[in-house]
């Protein structure tokens, strides 16, 4: 297995009280898989992603990537954030080149690589623009290009489309799906949007809150070409809805 999470847990101390973000999480991810961590806020999905990305390691259990325990961020993996994390003083071109600079890649080559990925996300006309001149969707495209430019093994995405309007979001979902097929990256995406997870994921990891843990792992039986309005798509979506509603039905039983 490529990513191996075993009995992982994360606890914080806040104002002297212990607070559990998630506990007892076990999950194996294969190379090239598209995984969505889906759940309501407070289920620890972002914290789990941060732990996998090495920003805040787990406090119990272990997370291993390629056999190595995750302790700090690795240049092999890149994270895409909800608020893009672009450097506003750099142009689109220079933003995309950012990760290449620390890899000591010569200037000409950097330019070429950046050009390729800027074109892939459809922003060739905006190379010289600054992030603030772009819409939210375009800014997130820049950060996707920036992530792809360093040719990472894994791309972590923390609610990447959460700040975008519905139509832009769907457009970007289309793009990320086709890019993920083309580039064959392992992608771990955190979301609270059920449709987004069904549309993108090979497997959906469904998480619940208090304390955060995995409730279910659902393999999405859809092929790489997905239609949001197709019958099989809606079926999978229904199943996810059902999984989230199960707790509700249990409660009803108790009342009776």
């Amino acid at each position: 297995m490529y990513i191996e999470i075993e009995n992982a847990g994360k606890a914080f101390f806040q104002n002297g009280r212990e607070f559990t973000a998630f506990t007892d999480v076990s999950l194996s991810i294969e190379k090239g898989e598209f995984i969505c961590l889906l759940g309501p806020s407070g289920c620890g999905k972002s914290t789990l992603l941060n732990a996998m990305a090495g920003f805040a390691p787990v406090t119990s259990g272990s997370i291993k990537i390629d056999g190595k325990e995750v302790k700090e961020p690795s240049v092999k993996n890149v994270t895409i954030f909800q608020n893009y994390g672009l450097l506003p003083w750099r142009t689109v071109q220079k933003n995309v080149e950012l990760g290449l600079e620390s890899q000591k890649i010569p200037k000409d080559e950097r330019r070429k690589i950046a050009d390729k990925y800027i074109e892939m996300v459809g922003l060739s006309d905006f190379k010289k623009s600054h992030p603030r001149q772009l819409s939210g969707g375009m800014q997130q495209r820049v950060s996707i290009a920036r992530a792809l430019a360093v040719n990472p093994d894994i791309i972590f995405m923390d609610e990447p489309f959460g700040a975008l309007d519905a139509i832009t979001r769907m457009k970007l979902q289309d793009d990320i799906l086709s890019i993920s097929r083309k580039e064959k990256k392992t992608i771990i995406l955190v979301t609270h949007d059920i449709e987004e997870a069904v549309f993108l994921a090979d497997r959906i990891v469904i998480m619940t809150a208090n304390p955060g843990k995995i409730k279910n792992i659902l393999t999405v039986p859809l092929r790489s070409h997905r239609e949001r309005t197709a019958g099989d798509f809606l079926q999978v979506r229904d199943k996810v809805f059902e999984l989230f509603n199960m707790k509700h039905e249990e409660n009803i039983e108790y009342i009776i």
Partner: peptide, 27 residues
């Protein structure tokens, strides 16, 4: 804090973080 996360994510180390990220960010 996102600037520090981005720097870490792309393997930018000191002193580059200082003049490539922190200084322009606070300028």
């Amino acid at each position: 804090p996102i600037y520090m996360k981005v720097s870490k994510s792309f393997g930018i180390k000191q002193p580059q973080i200082m003049w490539k990220v922190i200084f322009p960010a606070v300028f």
